[in-house]
């Protein structure tokens, strides 16, 4: 079964909670807000998001390279997953 956008967002948010900096509540970061500029994560933590997308959705960044803008916000990350045609089952 393919996950819905809402399920993917919830899964992404749970992951972000595991790597976020403590001073910024995730709930205060809008879906299109910059994850780094909002203070939620350190810019270098983007590598952890890459690893998350590789493991959870099988995205192959070695083949596609990384455009930093595609990982800038939760909305952009969900769009990246959708555009990549991720057909994995509901993220576990």
């Amino acid at each position: 079964m393919t996950a819905t956008r809402e399920q993917r967002l919830e899964h992404l948010q749970n992951f972000l909670r595991s790597i976020q900096k403590p001073g910024t509540p995730l709930g205060s970061v809008g879906i299109d807000d910059s994850l780094v500029d909002s203070g939620l994560i350190d810019s270098l933590a983007i590598v952890e998001i890459v690893a998350y997308l590789e493991e959870t959705y099988g995205l192959d960044f070695a083949a596609r390279g990384i455009d930093p803008e595609t990982l800038a916000s939760m909305g952009n990350i969900l769009a990246l997953i959708a555009a990549a045609g991720a057909t994995s089952a509901t993220p576990s």
Binding site: R17, Q20, K21, P22, G23, T24, P25, L26, G27, G39
Partner: peptide
């Protein structure tokens, strides 16, 4: 549980 404690008050001051 720093995230919970800081988030409980809606604290956004002084983000690290």
């Amino acid at each position: 549980e720093l995230i919970r404690i800081l988030g409980a008050s809606g604290n956004t001051a002084g983000n690290p």
